[in-house]
Structures are given as C-alpha cells and as structure tokens.
C-alpha cells in the first residue's frame, strides 16, 4: 500500500458548466469551513483568554504567597513617543470593565497628569486618540488585608537562543521574593534549566541593591544549597525561607551559580533581572505615591 500522494492522471478538458460546478462545490465547502471555524473560535476564545489570565494569576499568587483575599492591581506601561511621555494604566487585575487610573509622566519623570475613569474609555489603548501609545511592559501590585503585599514585574532578557520572558516578585521592602521564567527557547537540559525552581530560587531574599551588583559564577553549587533549593518545588516560599534562614544568609552575598553548560543563559536571566528591578524601583518611586493617593 503506497502512501505516496497520488499523481493524478491529467483529466479531460472540463467544459464551462463543469468548471462552474467545481467552483461552486469548492466555494460551498470553503464557506462551510469558515462558518465552522468562526463558530469554534467564538466558543473557545473566552476560555483561551481566561486560561491565559488564570495561569498568570496563579504564578503571581504563588510568587508572593498571596491568599484568596488578595487584591492585585495590574499597571500597564505605555510610551507616547511623540509627546515624550510614559503613561501608566492601573486597574484591578482581570477586571477589564472596572475603574481605571491613568497617570502620565514625562520621560524625565515630571508628573503630567492623573485621571480616574469609572469605566475605561470605549477603545482600549491602541485605538482612536490613544493610537500613538506603544506598550512597554506590565507590573502588578498586590495588597492583602489592607497592606502592601508586594510587586510582580514582567521583564524580558536576551537569551542564548531568543527572548526570555519572566516575572520577578519583590516584597514591600524591595527584596526579591521569587523569580519565574515564563517563556524561553533555550535548549532542553541546558539553557532550559534556568526555568526550574532550583535555579530561580537562588535569587530569593536578595535586596534590590544586591541584585544591582549581582554576578554569575561557574563554580559548582554546594550540595546542601542544591538540596535546599530542590525543596522549593514542593514548599511555599514563606515556609521555605523560614526553614533555610541560615543557608540563605550564607549564600545571599554570593554570586548566582550558573547552570552547567549554560553560562550564557544564566547570565542573560541575571542581567535581565538586574535591569528590570532597577527600572521598577525608579518607576515606582514616581508612580507609587500617585497610585496610593485617594485610591
């Protein structure tokens, strides 16, 4: 039984009527196909969007150790290049129809405006008057029981193969609470190891100042540190930090241990983290007071 695509013998020249019938036949099937696909898309798009949202929400919750009652605010950052302004849009995460606070700064950090809208304008950023806005990134602010629980900032690094997209979680004292690699195209078994809890866990507990000077070493990781980090996959971060306080204190001042055979990927993530945390601190110094006022 030959599985080859059959080479059709040349059929006789079709007449006009025949060609019309063929065309109608094909058109009918195409129209049916388009209708079916449209229907499937309509049915599944809601779920696809909800799944994406749920995945991120879970990551944020796990990184910061949030409980059910936590409130997360999503802050999207845009750039209006012509006016040399950055625009922040803050709204409750997952709620696209709720109140939105828009804060605008110049590139140099001067406050240009703040606006509260009970419901977002008809078109989200990207249409109409806001067409010139270019998305730059996102950050999330988490509050629990009335107090600031921490931040999660989305960042990107240039990896060995392609981009590495990650979340970095900072607590209210701007110490790293956790790192989660979301997307990457590194080699499995090599660069892809940076997306594992035992590598990401190395950043936990470092202050923002430490992160700014963080380096990567090729030295092998001490066994007890590795064993402790392996436990991160199963334990909530807060418990893990409490349990391994001494180890954290010992390893905190040291450089990050690179993945064997993937120094470049390890460095890429570290550099990306450094830039992201630095940018975030600078931005939050300006933005924080604006979001807190009258919230």
């Amino acid at each position: 039984m030959s599985p080859d695509l059959p080479i059709l013998p040349a059929p006789p020249r079709a007449d006009r009527g025949e060609m019309f019938r063929i065309a109608m036949n094909l058109t009918l099937f195409s129209a049916l196909a388009a209708a079916i696909l449209g229907g499937v898309w309509l049915a599944t798009e809601r779920y696809a969007a909800a799944a994406r949202l749920a995945g991120e929400k879970r990551a944020i919750g796990e990184l910061l150790g949030l409980g059910e009652s936590a409130e997360v605010t999503e802050v999207e950052q845009f750039m209006a290049a012509a006016a040399r302004e950055v625009v922040y849009r803050a709204h409750a995460y997952g709620d696209d129809a709720g109140p939105v606070r828009t804060v605008t700064f110049s590139f140099e950090g001067e406050l240009r405006g703040r606006e509260d809208l009970a419901a977002p304008a008809a078109a989200p950023a990207g249409g109409g008057a806001e067409a010139a806005l270019e998305p730059l990134g996102r950050m999330f602010v988490a509050r629990q029981d009335g107090a600031l629980a921490g931040f999660v900032v989305e960042g990107e690094a240039r990896g060995y193969k392609n981009r590495i997209r990650f979340f970095v979680a900072l607590d209210s004292a701007f110490q790293v609470a956790g790192v989660r690699v979301l997307e990457h195209e590194e080699d499995p078994g090599l660069g892809a190891e940076i997306a594992t809890p035992w590598f990401e866990g190395q950043y936990i507990g470092r202050s923002a100042g430490d992160v700014a000077k963080l380096t990567v070493t090729k030295d092998p990781m001490p066994e007890d540190w590795r064993a402790a980090l392996a436990g991160l996959a199963r334990t909530p971060v807060a418990d893990w930090r409490a349990k391994h306080g001494a180890l954290l204190a010992r390893e905190g001042p040291k450089p990050i241990y690179a993945v064997t055979g993937a120094t470049i990927s390890s460095r890429a993530l570290t550099d990306g983290l450094r830039t992201t945390v630095d940018h975030f601190r600078r931005r939050w110094a300006l933005l924080g007071p604006q979001l807190a006022e009258g919230a």
Binding site: I36, L37, V40, W41, T44, E45, R46, Y47, A48, A51, R52, G55
Partner: peptide, 12 residues
C-alpha cells in the same frame, strides 16, 4: 484549527 483552538482554551 478547531482542535488547535480547543487546546489553547482548555489545556494552555
């Protein structure tokens, strides 16, 4: 396409 969309929605 249908299966692709279904997977994207229910098994991201």
């Amino acid at each position: 396409s249908a299966i692709d969309m279904t997977l994207a929605a229910f098994a991201p």
